[in-house]
């Protein structure tokens, strides 16, 4: 059940995740964090529905709660003192605000990696690494091929070992099984490298084959994402967008340019979600 986002070219997908994570973490900005939080929550929900909600409730939200609690406990900066800790350190409004913002950011990051792990399957990541680092991508491919085989053999070895019925500790069982697996992996690898050489590995500089197609749409998307992130970073560096938490929480800079930046960023974050939703509407209207 692939959705429209999963049909993007791997490079486009990667640039999406990259631009979002850079803008989100380059500077803690409550508005950006909010947009990211809701935008990625929508994306996660569109991609995986129930599973995403379950994961959020179980792991992502608690993780961000920790951040919200931790910050005021350790950070005592800020001018607006709300109360004092028993050890005499101040409990400030600014540190609470900062904690909430960074908690939201961590949660947004969890959402981002959730989508990333669902969408960027191993062959997509390998395609990306393979463009630049061919040997590396081949090693990853080989490892991913061995892992299921190793697991299958491990299951067999465990059974065979249990059947021997030796009376020894679990640790000793583990050692025997591990030794058996190491021996087996090494021995099989000898044949395997013969098979690679038999098919001409190492004679010439390898190319890296892939089955992805780069479409015009991908060019538009990438251009859009790069322009938006470039715009935002420029605004940030020229201090047209300006946020500080300490000593006082302060929002400043050029109001109009800031608003334009936030709107543009919202479009960037929502881009895959919009694509998925438009596609669903189209299908429904076609039927």
């Amino acid at each position: 059940m692939a959705n429209q986002f999963e049909r993007w070219h791997p490079l486009t997908q990667f640039i999406y995740f990259l631009t979002v994570i850079v803008i989100m973490t380059v500077k803690l900005n409550p508005l950006i964090t909010l947009v990211t939080f809701f935008g990625l929550a929508l994306l996660g929900f569109l991609i995986a529905r129930g599973d995403f909600l379950k994961m959020s409730a179980r792991f992502f939200l608690p993780a961000s709660l920790i951040a919200i609690v931790i910050n005021p406990l350790f950070s005592h900066e800020g001018a607006t003192i709300l109360a004092y800790f028993p050890d005499g350190n101040p409990f400030t409004l600014e540190s609470v605000l900062y904690g909430i913002a960074s908690g939201l950011m961590i949660c947004g990051m969890c959402f981002l990696f959730y989508s990333f792990n669902t969408v960027m399957t191993s062959d997509r990541i390998m395609y990306l690494t393979g463009r630049l680092f061919r040997t590396l991508s081949l090693i990853i491919s080989m490892t991913l091929r061995f892992i299921p085989e190793f697991k299958r053999q491990l299951d067999k070895v465990k059974k065979a070992h249990r059947c021997l019925g030796l009376k020894q500790s679990r640790l000793k069982d583990g050692i025997d099984i591990m030794n058996s697996m190491i021996m087996w992996s090494f021995e099989k690898s000898i044949d395997r490298s013969d098979s690679m050489r038999a098919r001409g590995y190492g004679i010439r500089r390898r190319t890296s084959f892939h089955i992805f197609t780069f479409t015009v749409r991908d060019i538009y998307y990438i251009a859009l994402m790069l322009i938006v992130s470039g715009w935002y970073l420029t605004m940030l560096f020229t201090e047209n967008i300006y946020v500080t938490f300490y000593p006082l929480f302060y929002y400043g800079g050029n109001l109009i340019l800031s608003i334009i930046s936030y709107v543009l960023y919202s479009v960037l974050v929502l881009l895959p979600s919009i694509d998925i939703i438009l596609e669903e509407i189209k299908w429904k209207s076609l039927q």
Binding site: I139, T143, F146, S189, S193, M196, Y201
Partner: peptide
């Protein structure tokens, strides 16, 4: 080939 096989 043997080297990258061993790494994998």
């Amino acid at each position: 080939a043997r080297e990258i096989m061993l790494v994998a």
